[in-house]
Nucleic acid binder design. Structure first.
Lengths: 246, 246
DNA sequence: CGGGCTCTTGACTCAGCTCAAGATTTGTGG
DNA sequence: CCACAAATCTTGAGCTGAGTCAAGAGCCCG
């Protein structure tokens, strides 16, 4: 979180300028914006604005009317759904470069909340959808991302409905590792930005079960816990087998 | 299933003709094709062809390269994912009017299998994606359907991760009822096209638990089981409360 | 009308939950 | 930099909802 660009600098770099903020954005190459070239990106810059949230702050309310989309620049975000009595299911975690929102939809369908201090780049719904009309390849890119979200959701349904607690923890660690590697981070020393409660709500478990399973993997030397919520994956092979019930 | 149009008639009505098959298609108004007017639909007709599958037949293999998309005309279809040891999770059921396939994706991500005798209308990937370039409103429609799938997946993650067996069965019956009503069928007398095993694999339960919970609802007079796998919803209110844990 | 399904029901087991302490980490003010 | 309160995490003991195993009841369909 120490690398979050202070808001002041962001504000002075507000988009719309020829020399757009986007061109020096640290997630430019990884996010949906990479579908636009250096000239086209100016149009996106022109309709974007940045915002920072503290850990725990709500970014979008569940069922709220969609008015803006967002791109995560820095931080970790969770998407969740609630039952009337307070039971929670986290449907996904988002990381830098990830897109938030459903194109051509009326309403949000999940809570969107900052897990850590988070910096996002937002676009008004109309402006972005208007931009899509003129750039079919951008539409295709966002359609692709939407499909990717669906694939991840399907994979998670398999986990929630059919995997054991041990398999769930294994799968979770591998997912974080894979996503870290996509971002260019070290896949063997992963940072757990979220607490046990969020992990439990993501895996359909209780915090006690999460804690016990992690302790067990530690005892078995499959993982090692370091300072600053770092998990070292000692034995990726073992983790992979365990995640699918071998 | 008695209303399935015999293949012979279908073949003679093959699309491409001015007076397209689509214009007399029984799911025309409900499926993605409704985004096209009576002239435009001719283009879709020209690239479509029909096919029938028997119960249990595979329509698309998991992880297979996408070469065709499909629209369900008649029957019930299941989407599922498997673990190496055979555990199965059904990620969704599809009904007449539903679209199958991920636009702008490389591969399928689930098995697609006929639950009952099923009739589909298929389109070659390239042809349909080509059509999308010329009809942005069709793209928007399919994007909307993709979002709807994602919303349903999120809802199901909440069910799989956080609901009790009783709540799961209640939610399942209400889902079938809602989908039946969208199709213009009676929402209070729903047809269970799938067996207990498929219900169990959809809800993350065992067949015994599914059977016990259904029996319990029957004893409590919330539902009544009729001939031909019909479930009568006697008390929709009770079902609704029970589905969310009231 | 009989063989092979699927579905139901019962008895028992167990993975993961609940409840309850402690231990560790984090944040805060002096 | 330390003390100490609050929050989070770990661990233990016992419980329970759903799973497993097993037997019997319906119900197609030839």
């Amino acid at each position: 979180m120490s690398e979050v660009i202070p808001l002041k600098i962001l504000d002075s770099a507000r988009c719309g300028a020829k020399d757009s903020f986007c061109n020096q954005c640290k997630v430019r190459k990884r996010s949906f914006c990479s579908a636009l070239d250096d000239v086209e990106i100016g149009e996106l810059s022109a309709i974007s604005s940045q915002k920072t949230y503290h850990a725990g702050e709500t970014i979008f309310e569940e069922a709220a009317k969609i008015s803006r989309f967002a791109n995560i620049i820095e931080g970790t975000v969770k998407l969740s759904k609630l039952l009337p009595d307070g039971r929670q299911q986290i449907t996904g975690f988002l990381f830098p470069g990830d897109f938030v929102g459903k194109i051509y939809s009326e309403n949000h369908t999940t809570f969107v909340e900052a897990v850590t201090k988070t910096q996002i780049c937002t676009f008004a719904q109309g402006s972005l959808e208007n931009l899509l009309e003129r750039h079919p390849h951008l539409t295709r890119r966002l359609f692709g991302l939407s499909n990717q979200s669906l694939e991840r959701a399907e994979e998670w349904m398999l986990l929630l409905g059919r995997k054991t607690a041990r398999e769930k923890i294994g799968s979770f660690l591998l997912l974080l590792s894979q996503r870290a590697s996509e971002r260019g981070d070290d896949p063997d020393n992963i940072h757990l930005a979220m607490g046990r409660a969020d992990i439990a709500d993501y895996l359909g478990l209780t915090i006690e079960t999460v804690s016990r399973q992690i302790s067990k993997l530690k005892t078995e030397q499959v993982i090692r816990l370091g300072a600053g919520n770092i998990v070292h994956l000692n034995d990726r092979e073992a983790l992979q087998e365990l995640a699918e019930g071998a």
